[in-house]
């Protein structure tokens, strides 16, 4: 067995098995997240939420999936067919492949590469293509406007996200995600870098096109934005991709600031709980905040969104980056 796993075929088989072990739970989590979001928002608005299909509405996601599968995929007459079909697939695939480098526990990453943080940043910056291609290929005004908004928004918030990540990396001294988590053994980074944690979380809201920054789909002005022409399975792929991206950003926030798989304190009852459970709990906390924000805040206006990104977050994160570098240098805390 050990011999087989060292051959190229064995490595391939092992990687496929690992990928399935990660992606199948992820997709199930995405399915139940759609239900959880509706339930949480219902509770916040004093409603009941979905409660008809199955006990407590637990089978609602499967009913929705069944409906999506049964419906007809409509390709508009003026659409660029290949790109129109490709865009949702691209969104979905990008949301999946980024998980390859996320460490769920010490040594539990499918690919524990040296430049893991950069890989994640690269993949998340590619997410804009699914949206922009969908908007262009639909050959529709609303879809195109949504795509343009989304492109400008994602590029803007990536800049300050980059600075936040650089600040964290200064404190770690490595681009490897496992090293990032291990560097938080004594103190999670959200305490010393609290302002950056807030900026990062708000930027992930913008990066995943979530409320209050869901202008690309702004239903009151753009019908549904970039996916207005999509139906059935192509729509479902966008939906799944968006939620998988939210999970990914939650995982990234947990890894960079909330100590990944580490328990809050390394003391007896807490460190009996296995690392992956802590990691999942932290992701769930971030996802809850995503939904909480959506239920609480009204949508930003477009100029306010741009002002926040370029005139508030960018200068602030830049100054904080320089301050962090100075502090590390002066107090001799630079990692070796």
């Amino acid at each position: 067995m050990a011999d087989f796993l060292n051959t190229p075929v064995g490595i391939f088989a092992l990687t496929v098995a690992q990928a399935l072990a990660l992606l199948v739970p992820l997709l199930i989590a995405v399915a139940f997240m759609t239900l959880a979001e509706r339930k949480i928002m219902a509770a916040m608005q004093l409603r009941k939420g979905p409660n008809v299909v199955g006990p407590f509405g637990l089978l609602q996601p499967f009913a929705d999936a069944g409906k999506m599968l049964m419906k007809e995929t409509i390709v508009p007459a003026g659409a660029s067919k290949v790109l129109f079909i490709m865009a949702p697939m691209l969104t979905f695939v990008l949301a999946m492949i980024a998980w390859a480098v996320i460490p769920v526990n010490e040594g539990w990453a499918i690919a524990d590469i040296n430049v893991g943080v950069l890989y994640l940043f690269a993949i998340s910056s590619l997410g804009v293509y699914g949206i922009i291609i969908a908007g262009w290929a639909s050959n529709s005004k609303y879809a195109f406007l949504g795509a343009l908004r989304s492109a400008a928004q994602m590029v803007s918030y990536e800049v300050s996200m980059g600075f936040v990540i650089v600040t964290v990396l200064l404190c770690v001294g490595s681009l490897n995600l496992t090293d990032v988590v291990l560097a938080q053994k004594n103190l999670w980074f959200f305490i010393p870098l609290f302002p950056m944690f807030i900026i990062f979380f708000i930027s992930t809201l913008a990066e995943t096109n979530r409320a209050p920054f869901d202008l690309p789909e702004g239903e009151s002005e753009l019908v549904a934005g970039f996916f207005v022409e999509y139906s059935a399975m192509t729509f479902a792929l966008f939906f799944l991709g968006e939620y998988a991206n939210m999970f990914l950003m939650s995982a990234l926030t947990s890894t960079l600031f909330l100590g990944g798989w580490l328990p809050p304190f390394d003391v007896a009852p807490l460190n009996w709980v296995p690392g992956p459970i802590w990691f999942i709990l932290k992701i769930c906390f971030c996802m809850f905040v995503f939904v909480w924000v959506r239920a609480t805040l009204p949508r930003y206006r477009y100029d306010q969104l741009m002002r926040l990104g370029w005139k508030v977050f960018l200068p602030f994160s830049l100054v904080w980056l320089v301050l962090t570098a100075f502090a590390l240098k002066i107090f001799g805390w630079l990692p070796a």
Binding site: V115, L118, Y119, F121, A122, S125, L126, V128, Y129, I132, L148, A151, A152, M154, V155, E158
Partner: peptide, 18 residues
């Protein structure tokens, strides 16, 4: 490789496509 993707594909080409 990663910088090529982040800078050129993630930012420059998006604006270009735009």
């Amino acid at each position: 490789a990663m910088i090529l993707v982040i800078v050129y594909v993630g930012a420059v080409a998006v604006l270009f496509l735009f």
